[in-house]
Design a protein around this nucleic acid. Sequence first.
DNA 1: TATGAATGAGTCTTCATTCAT
DNA 2: AATGAATGAAGACTCATTCAT
Lengths: 229, 229, 229, 229
Amino acid sequence: MTFGHFCVIILHMGRLAQKKQEKKDKLLRSAFSLFKEKGIENTSISEIAHGAGVAKGTFYLYFKDKYALYEVLVARCANDILVQAMKPFTKDKASEPKTDKEWVISVMDRILEIMENDHSMLEFVSKNLSWGLFRSALYSPTESDIVDFRGIFSSLITEDGLLKYKDPELMIYMIIELVSSTCYSVILESSPADLSCLKPHLNAAISSIIDSFYIEDVSKRPKSAAAGL
Amino acid sequence: MTFGHFCVIILHMGRLAQKKQEKKDKLLRSAFSLFKEKGIENTSISEIAHGAGVAKGTFYLYFKDKYALYEVLVARCANDILVQAMKPFTKDKASEPKTDKEWVISVMDRILEIMENDHSMLEFVSKNLSWGLFRSALYSPTESDIVDFRGIFSSLITEDGLLKYKDPELMIYMIIELVSSTCYSVILESSPADLSCLKPHLNAAISSIIDSFYIEDVSKRPKSAAAGL
Amino acid sequence: MTFGHFCVIILHMGRLAQKKQEKKDKLLRSAFSLFKEKGIENTSISEIAHGAGVAKGTFYLYFKDKYALYEVLVARCANDILVQAMKPFTKDKASEPKTDKEWVISVMDRILEIMENDHSMLEFVSKNLSWGLFRSALYSPTESDIVDFRGIFSSLITEDGLLKYKDPELMIYMIIELVSSTCYSVILESSPADLSCLKPHLNAAISSIIDSFYIEDVSKRPKSAAAGL
Amino acid sequence: MTFGHFCVIILHMGRLAQKKQEKKDKLLRSAFSLFKEKGIENTSISEIAHGAGVAKGTFYLYFKDKYALYEVLVARCANDILVQAMKPFTKDKASEPKTDKEWVISVMDRILEIMENDHSMLEFVSKNLSWGLFRSALYSPTESDIVDFRGIFSSLITEDGLLKYKDPELMIYMIIELVSSTCYSVILESSPADLSCLKPHLNAAISSIIDSFYIEDVSKRPKSAAAGL
DNA sequence: TATGAATGAGTCTTCATTCAT
DNA sequence: AATGAATGAAGACTCATTCAT
């Protein structure tokens, strides 16, 4: 379980507020584990509360219902993955890949790596149909992010204030969908092939997708309005 | 609702058997509509029965539970789509595309077309996490098929008894996942782009995926054991 | 299964009537087997019909409901056992025991023997709380009986038109209850002892019960009105 | 209804715990009354809850299902009867009967008396085929018992550490079965005789059963291992 | 006669939600 | 804030009984 990261360091919080946060985290952790195992519809609030070691009634002090909790969970989860996947490239500029392609491929590579090391995350996300929400998290990051997604993407797709790619959002969308839809059974069941078999083909496909969006003729590049995202 | 195709023409059937089949179809249709609207977990058997205009108990004369019905539904649905998508190429040999790429792309194109003309199918499939089952239907077609999937695939990936592609199953898997995961929000919400915008990029990606699996050196091609699927 | 005896030889019966009787027997046999296995309350009419190889609706052509069938079953069952238990003493007078005690004990012995050879009868009778009905069958035999219980008992308890026992009905009642309540777990589970261990004590008890009812002083014996039963 | 005894005096119990106990008792009482009237199979949980004045769901807070409740009921019932039947002999040693026979007969007498004064207990026990469980309660008393059955029986069947009876368990079994099977219709329907008519014969039979197990030759008595029960 | 499809009342069971403590 | 007892609505499933064929 990788919910360690959920427990953001809490500074300058009253004892009480801290205790409340801890209880909320317990509920989130318990729900995460149950949702990934049985899906949201087959998990009862009773079970979540029991798993968190609190009474049923207490649940309602923190969340309206399980769907409200679920949204928090997905947002945290998505953010967590993205932060982890991109962190290396924000600290040490030297380690960054040179080209856009290399950058995208290595981010996707890290995501696959994270998933492989933490099946629970993958199971949760797939058992709960939450790729959609996950995607939305990419476009509208929560306030608590350490990584500046918008800035990073913006700098990725522009050059000298001009867009290098025709429809960058669609491009990202295609890449994310390809990687995410593809990885589930490959990672969890090694079917229809190993992740190591898939990767070269995946990288080639990503590369080709990026190519197909690239505007070679610099003079035809449109101006970037708010970085396109 | 496109369940017209489900109602296979019934010849030489007793009046009773025919009525039973009709009732079963009514239940399937009702469930299909509810599942795609609310998902299987949020649909009750009462609702299905009511939608079909029969009593609750009648449901159990035809299906063990809603999951049994669901499987029939997915199988029919998947088969329906594939049959429709491939039918053109079996009748009139002249209209067939020349290369493998062209063939795959035009099949995928037809699937997208079908989905666009019939959102309910797409909604059902995505609301119910059933791409997996859908995929399995591709590999193990039911006896009622008109189209010989295995034969078609077999002839697609081999040449003179030799495999033209490294891992044809993985190749097909990647293509299907790319197309299916990508099309949902594009067709239903035109987001992040129109289907017409997506298609050229999709075709390019498919083309590149096929390329990345192609074995150019004929002498290195392995013998096709049971056509590889 | 000892239901062979149920199928009384049918003479001078029309083909149709015969077929009907056969179907009825099938239903009885099926119900017998199910009742003894699961009890009457947990057996459905569907199951009975299925076990008899007829349609559900057919059941209602022969019995009002399962309780009506049940009564027929108990009557037949009880009669069957009693007929079997007493038959030896009606054919060959020479083989009969001399004293009343010996006679009763050897009848009870035969009943235990029957039960031991045919657990299904015992299971049926005990699973269905039917000792009471069984007992009543003793006192009001059905018309189809071959054995004349009343006559036998009458001759057992009287001598020269005088009653030898104070309250013969109560005497028989006590003996039957003792034997039947005692034999169930002994025969089916050998608990708390074997049948062979129980028998001597049982016989002693029966003997003592008969003694306690015996009217020694002949002059005090009342006249037997309709043999007391 | 004799459930008064069930409501053990509750000391030092929280208000809540007390209320819960009361509700449980209400459910037990309601079920007791319904079971004895219609048998367990024909009693629904709805009815039990309604009879107890609580909602259907509340039932499940106290018992897994009606069979779980039933077991509690039988255990309490059996214990209740035995405790009542034996209590007189534990308080005042002087009032105790002298011989084993007298003791057993007077205990059985008290049980019959209890049953006669409280038909509901008898109806419940017989409607529900629970003599077996009743008997088992005799051999494995619950912790809450006031009377030490094992101790009493042990001292009954031994003398100077030697067993006075051949197979004491079987002896007790025969006596209990005789009394219990015999008393039902006699008490409830005075059929085939009054309880007052039955008693002398019953006592004679018990006496004779004990005799038939008695080991007269002291030198042949086996050593009592754990009192034989 | 025989069938078995259809019914819908009835049963068990779960669970979100409320509320007194 | 926290609890967990209580509720009753809702869902799954069964089954005796009817009835058209």
